[in-house]
Structures are given as structure tokens and as C-alpha cells.
């Protein structure tokens, strides 16, 4: 019982703190890639910048605009946080660490939770009663709807190979070879769709600053905005963790302990996501849609068919 609780809270706490720390990591990395230093003044190497930001954001006025729909407005950030944290519950960090394997269908659970998170975006935009916000929500819905299709499809190759939806078994199935090799196409499609699902750059059209001020969270400030913000980083960690688990063998690896392998792999993807942000421009909305439906969906289907054919043939 106690061990279970420690597991739950330990992971939860580490996850949230990691997400918060990621704000510093992201700014530091972006700085480095732009020949700057990034935050380096508060605490050693600027590490306490996170604390400063937290203090600032916690002490901001908790304000609901008078024209907003109050319940929806407050609920929206809670949904994204809850959904993504729940999704992480199914991630097996090591054989011993992990909240809950969800009895063999962990992968489906995570996908469900990721899908659920879009309600937060929709609700936040709608409840804000602001035209930028509602435009952002509309984009979020369309984007989620489109990319969710092959978010799932791209993973079916992995599932077919592992013959299980259970993430531990999927990891175990990669003992010989990481799935990234046979499932390279699936990996690419999933990574793209994953970025889109958590609307990270370059797929951040729901909150495109340059055209929609801040999209669905235009009206948010203070800790409610902070939750959206942290939620986004939890999303990054979640998708990175999924990539590591599904395609790069999760905790598997030589010499080092399993936990460290998991962290290294996840961290590498997180850094890669930040590199994407530093390097790539945002596509136009129609390009995003065309890319999804005309390229990624056929690729995902192709990957599924080839995998199925190969598995049937041998």
C-alpha cells in the first residue's frame, strides 16, 4: 500500500517538477541554439528561475474575465492537467516503477487521455468568449481530429509486432531489437502526430501568437495560465516517454540501470522537441491539414498493411 502510494506520488511529483523545470531547460536550450545564454541569473546557472516564475505566477491575481463562462473557464486548465497526468499513469518507467499498468490496455488508455485533453482547449477557448480564443479552439479541434486518426494507426504496427497493448509487454518485446528499426515509418508518423496532439511547435496553430495573440488561452492569466503552461510540458514528457517506450525499448539498455535509460531516452526526445521549436517555422493551416490527411494518413496505413503482411507471411 505504502509502496503504491509512494510510486503514485513520487511519479506525480517528479513529473510536475520536471515539467516546471522544463521551462528553464527550454529557455536555456533555445538560448544556446540562438547563440545566447538564456536565463542564468537566478540561482546556480539560473536554475531558480523556475522558482521565481512560480512565485510570480502564483501571486498574480486569479482573475476570471466578467464576460467569460465561469465554470468552463475554470474547468479547462484542470482538464488538460488531469488528462495528461492520468495518461502518464500508464507509462512503465522501469519494471518496478509505474503507477498502474491498466491491465493490458495501457496504450489505449494513454491515447484516450491524450484525446481527452483536447476538451480543455475547446472549453478554454469557448468559455473565454473571445474571438481569438474561439478561433484557437476551432483549430485545436480540427487538428486533434485529424492527427488522432493516425496517432493511433501509426502505433498499430508496434502493437501487431508486440501482440499486446500492454506497455510492459511492448517494452519486453523490444529486447531483441528496438521497434524503431522495423517500425521506422510508424515512428516518424507517431512522432509528428504526437507533436501535433500536444500542439507543440511547429504545430502550435491553436495558440499561434503571431496571428491569434495567444489562441485559446488569450484570456488566461495567473495560475490558470500556469496550469495550461505546465500541462503543455507534461504533454511533452508524456509523448517523449511514449516514444521511448514504444520505439526505443523503454528502460532496456546495457550497463546503466533501467531508470537512467528511461530518463536518457525521454530526455533526448524532450531536447529534440525543443530543437524543433528552435529550428522550424509554423506551417500554414491548410498545409497542416494537407500534410496530415494526404501524407501521414497514407503512410500510417501503408505501415500498418506492410507490417500486417509481413507478420502474416512469416
Amino acid at each position: 500500500m505504502m509502496a503504491g502510494l509512494a510510486n503514485v506520488f513520487g511519479i506525480l511529483l517528479v513529473l510536475v517538477i520536471t515539467a516546471a523545470l522544463l521551462t528553464w531547460v527550454e529557455r536555456r536550450l533555445l538560448g544556446l541554439w540562438q547563440d545566447r545564454l538564456g536565463p542564468n541569473r537566478v540561482g546556480p546557472a539560473g536554475l531558480l528561475q523556475v522558482v521565481a516564475d512560480m512565485i510570480k505566477i502564483l501571486f498574480k491575481e486569479d482573475w476570471v474575465p466578467p464576460f467569460a463562462d465561469r465554470i468552463g473557464f475554470i474547468l479547462a486548465p484542470a482538464i488538460v492537467m488531469a488528462a495528461l497526468l492520468l495518461g502518464f499513469a500508464a507509462i512503465p518507467v522501469t519494471p518496478g516503477i509505474g503507477v498502474w499498468p491498466v491491465d493490458g490496455v495501457g496504450l489505449l488508455f494513454i491515447l484516450a487521455m491524450i484525446s481527452l485533453s483536447v476538451y480543455s482547449t475547446v472549453l478554454g477557448g469557448w468559455a473565454s468568449n473571445n474571438k481569438y480564443a474561439i478561433l484557437g479552439s476551432l483549430r485545436a479541434v480540427a487538428q486533434m481530429l485529424s492527427y488522432e486518426v493516425f496517432l493511433g494507426l501509426s502505433l498499430l504496427g508496434v502493437v501487431l509486432q508486440a501482440r499486446s497493448f500492454d506497455l510492459r509487454q511492448i517494452v519486453a518485446a523490444q529486447a531483441g531489437m528496438w521497434f524503431v528499426v522495423p517500425q521506422f515509418l510508424g515512428f516518424l508518423v507517431f512522432m509528428t502526430a504526437g507533436i501535433a496532439a500536444i500542439h507543440r511547435l511547429p504545430f502550435d496553430l491553436p495558440e499561434a501568437e503571431s496571428e491569434l495573440t495567444a489562441g485559446f488561452h488569450t484570456e488566461y492569466s495567473g495560475m490558470k495560465f500556469g496550469i495550461f503552461f505546465i500541462g503543455e510540458y507534461v504533454g511533452i514528457v508524456l509523448v517523449s516517454a511514449m516514444l521511448a517506450t514504444l520505439f526505443f525499448g523503454g528502460w532496456l539498455g546495457p550497463v546503466l540501470p533501467p531508470l537512467l535509460w528511461f530518463l536518457i531516452k525521454t530526455g533526448a526526445f524532450v531536447a529534440f522537441f525543443i530543437l524543433l521549436r528552435a529550428a522550424l517555422p509554423r506551417p500554414r493551416y491548410d498545409q497542416l491539414m494537407a500534410f496530415g490527411w494526404k501524407l501521414l494518413l497514407p503512410l500510417a496505413l501503408l505501415n500498418l498493411m506492410v507490417t500486417a503482411a509481413v507478420l502474416l507471411a512469416f
Partner: peptide, 21 residues
């Protein structure tokens, strides 16, 4: 070009910082 961009940006990790402290 996307990959090239990623690579070039990545290489900036090893450039000199412009920041004046």
C-alpha cells in the same frame, strides 16, 4: 531542408555566445 535546418540549428550549440553579461 528541414533536416538541414535542424542540423544547422543544432550546431549552434557550439557557437560563441553573443550575450554581453
Amino acid at each position: 531542408s528541414l533536416l538541414k535546418t535542424l542540423w544547422l540549428i543544432f550546431l549552434h550549440l557550439f557557437h560563441r555566445r553573443e550575450t554581453i553579461e
